[in-house]
């Protein structure tokens, strides 16, 4: 479904963060990228959603290379990223925030209206707080709204950047079930997660990233059981950090 081939990327004039990343995300799977701080996990997502232009390599969606396309073009192809944090627009209401998810399809009013109603059904929070400003939401509620916003386009691929960040256990569990429900409708999910156990417990496959390269790929369950994993994270090898 999505194949990363020899992906090299970095910011500004600084060195490369990703130094040749190769892995594939199977259609309809949940894949979780794990790795220590600064391994380049978020950078993979940024190149995939178009925020960052790759220096080398390809990102194939099916057979089309989407590396270097604008975020709008990638959104139209059905690939949506949920931002890490501060992604909501605090001066707008919850409803407006969610509706903005369909920005690239803004001409299709009827469809957007119907889709919003569907989403408000799935997430009761959206319906309850529709007219409140996003600034009034708690951290967990914001995540939910960000997640719901990403669904406005009926995406085929959802990219989640550290979904558990700042969430309490209850909110984490809710989020996990939302992700699984989404996946059961056939959506491919690529997650980046610092909290390894949480991320892998949702996922089918795991990808271990370190120092801008893929160290290891396998089934998520195997990875969780792997005793080396504990060492890798509690051992915390840190090589490079994002600027």
């Amino acid at each position: 479904m999505i194949t990363f081939k020899g992906l090299v990327a970095g910011y500004g004039r600084a060195g490369d963060i990703l130094r040749g990343v190769d892995f594939a995300v199977a259609e309809g799977s949940i894949t979780c990228i794990v790795g220590p701080n600064g391994a380049g996990k978020s950078t993979v997502l940024k190149t995939c959603s178009g925020l960052l232009r790759p220096r080398k390599g390809q990102i194939l969606l099916g057979s089309q290379d989407i590396g270097g396309l604008t975020p709008a073009a990638i959104l139209r192809l059905g690939v949506v990223q949920v931002p890490q944090h501060h992604g909501l627009f605090p001066t707008l209401t919850v409803r407006e925030n969610v509706q903005l998810g369909a920005y690239v399809n803004r001409r299709q009013r009827e469809r957007n209206r119907a889709r919003y109603e569907e989403i408000a059904q799935i997430f009761p929070l959206i319906a309850e707080r529709a007219n409140d400003r996003a600034a009034s939401l708690s951290g967990g509620q914001r995540r939910t709204v960000e997640f719901a916003r990403a669904l406005m386009l009926n995406p085929g691929v959802v990219l989640l950047d550290e979904p558990s960040l700042g969430l309490d256990p209850k909110a984490c569990r809710q989020l996990a079930s939302s992700v699984k429900a989404l996946n059961q409708q056939g959506v491919t999910v690529l997650i980046v997660e610092q909290n390894v156990r949480f991320g892998l417990s949702m996922a089918d496959n795991g990808v271990v990233l370190e120092g801008g390269r893929v160290l290891h790929t396998s089934g998520a369950a195997e990875l969780l059981a792997d005793p080396d994993m504990g060492a890798l994270f509690f051992g915390g090898t840190t090589r490079e950090t994002q600027p």
Binding site: S164, D168, R173, N195, R197, G230, F233, F234
Partner: peptide
């Protein structure tokens, strides 16, 4: 602590 780092957040 192990749980907070590796696993689900524990309250």
């Amino acid at each position: 602590v192990l749980d907070a780092y590796l696993g689900g957040h524990s309250a």
